[in-house]
Design a binder for these strands. Structure first.
Length: 487
RNA sequence: GGCGACGUAGCCAAGUGGUUAAGGCGGAGGUCUGCAAAACCUCUAUUCGGCGGUUCGAUUCCGCCCGUCGCCUCCA
């Protein structure tokens, strides 16, 4: 498999020792509800992980929570609760949201606040080695000491200072220096350290958690494109300064950002769609399919139109999986689709192409079935390949609280309409309707319509079909048989 | 100002130095059907932002221009 590495800018063939993959994905700062942009990132790496596992790697997946930072402190104070209470709430929410999106849980979700002893050790070492300095309770990393600073984001210290709004801080020796440890203000959550009470800076928790959980060299480090600078740049600088080991990360992988009306979706802009909101409107499979329909590194515009369009496509796949295959005519060979799927995924996780292949396979299954060829194995293949993308292909079901009553009501209306016809068979069918079981009512309705259609009573047959359609119950008629399904 | 990405049909979106530029949605016609739905068949970009260059040949490589977006401050 080939993966694009941000640091080298190259497509590189992926391999690892003993077929084990150390995968570290930057998690969230839990101070507010997760949005669909977070979902895109998480799903990107979920698919990467699933695929690596599919091709035989053993993946160890670690994702952190940065559960202490300025915004958490501010927000907790606003709500008059502890930082812990606040961060716990949003961490739980996040985990639950991801579960709903069928994301495989990471093997570990380490917290920044639980890594503090390790953080302190690393900061002490960085000071001892001359990469960092303490000033009035703060500790800063000295970017000039790390000669490769800027390598990941491909920029030079001078250029960054020249163009823009770097805050000059009295405490720092160089404006680009960044905090490893921050002295805390009275009343803020704080931890004891050799430099007084304080808390970790933003990037050091990831370094520490990586080293503690995965070792000095990790195979894949992932996150959103907006983390390249400063987060990953700083993480890289401090990690390699600490370990003297190059590389810290073999593959830096970054996903493109999700836009809303061509503008990045972010907390600061406020143009957020929460995962919860998205899930109220769209099935998890659809949201995943939407993300995967574009390349993971490209920007992607979140829009209701795009999602709704894709929904028709998802319905196609679901319809194909509903086919009852013939059993006695040669099996459709779906292995070429698997090969093409793998080829696409091997090419830097080209999920867009892979999704295209799913549709091609679906089309082929429909064709084969029409020609009386058995498609059972091909259906399994479709499910299997979709599964690599984390698609569950759950058929729609919905049992509205009073749905049974509504369908039963339909019987009552029908019995009035039918009386004049004096058809004993029909009346018997109607009479045996069981208001408890939707399945049996639907089966009976299908049978009733059969009779009606045989008797050319199309008006009533159509009325039943239309009425059920309004309840999201679809009846499909074929010359020889009829079926019902959920919309 | 610096760095980077992108611009492919009505929309979403892959892709390639050269026979037919994936796939989905939408649209048109047809088959099937009592009708509808689903499915199937055919069609729907002589052309890949614009202008030059390299090349026998470029949408694909190079340069410039136009446009959109991202990063350089917290962000997945």
């Amino acid at each position: 498999m080939y993966i694009r590495d941000t640091l080298s800018g190259q497509l590189k063939e992926f391999s690892s020792e003993d077929n084990k993959v150390k995968l570290y994905v930057c998690g969230i700062t839990p101070y507010s509800t997760a949005h669909v942009g977070h979902a895109r990132s998480t799903i990107t790496f979920d698919v990467l992980r699933r695929y690596l596992e599919f091709i035989g790697f053993e993946v160890q997946h670690v994702q952190n929570f940065t559960d202490i930072d300025d915004k958490i402190i501010v927000k907790a104070r606003e709500e008059s609760i502890s930082y812990k209470e606040l961060s716990t709430r949003y961490m739980q929410e996040y985990i639950r949201d991801m579960e709903r999106l069928n994301v495989l849980p990471a093997h570990k979700y380490p917290l920044a606040t639980e890594a503090i002893p390790g953080i302190i050790k690393i900061v002490e070492q960085l000071i001892a080695k001359g990469y960092a300095y303490e000033n009035d309770g703060d500790v800063y990393f000295s970017v000039r000491k790390y000669i490769n600073y800027g390598q990941l984001s491909n920029r030079s210290i001078d250029d960054m200072i020249a163009g823009s709004r770097i805050e000059i801080s009295e405490q720092k020796r160089h404006p680009m220096d960044f905090a490893l440890w921050k002295a805390s203000k009275p009343g803020d959550p704080s931890w004891e350290s050799p430099w007084g009470n304080g808390r970790p800076g933003w990037h050091i928790e990831c370094t520490t958690i990586c080293l503690d959980n995965l070792g000095e060299t990790i195979d894949i480090h992932g996150g959103g494109l907006d983390l390249v600078f400063p987060h990953h740049e700083n993480e890289l600088a401090q990690s390699e300064s600490f370990t003297d080991k190059d590389p810290f990360v073999r593959f830096w992988v970054h996903n493109g950002l999700l836009n809303l009306q061509d503008e990045k979706m972010s907390k600061s802009v406020g143009n957020l769609v929460s995962i919860d909101t998205a899930l109220e409107k769209y099935k998890p499979d659809l949201i995943r399919l939407f993300f995967l329909s574009a390349h993971y590194r490209s920007p992607l515009n979140y829009s209701d139109q795009a999602l709704s369009n894709l929904n028709k496509g998802l319905d196609r796949l679901l319809a194909v999986l509903r086919i009852h295959p013939h059993t006695d005519f040669g099996q459709l060979d779906s292995s070429p689709f698997e090969s093409k799927f793998i080829e696409s995924m091997n090419d830097d996780l080209n999920t867009s192409q892979a999704v295209g292949i799913l549709f091609e396979l679906a089309h082929e299954i429909n064709r084969a079935h029409l020609n009386n060829i058995t498609v059972g194995e091909a259906q399994k293949m479709l499910k299997k390949l979709g599964g690599i993308l984390g698609l569950k292909f759950n058929q729609s079901t919905s049992s509205g609280a009073d749905l049974e009553d509504k369908v039963f009501d339909l019987y009552r209306q029908m019995s009035k309409m039918i009386e004049p016809s004096n058809d004993q068979g029909l009346s018997n069918l109607i009479a045996c309707a069981d208001s408890k079981s939707l399945d049996s009512m639907m089966d009976t309705l299908v049978a009733i319509r059969r009779k009606l259609r045989d008797a050319n009573s199309y008006d009533l047959a159509d009325w039943i079909r239309d009425t059920l359609a309004k309840l999201n119950l679809i009846i499909e008629d074929n010359p020889e048989s009829s079926h019902w399904r959920w919309k």
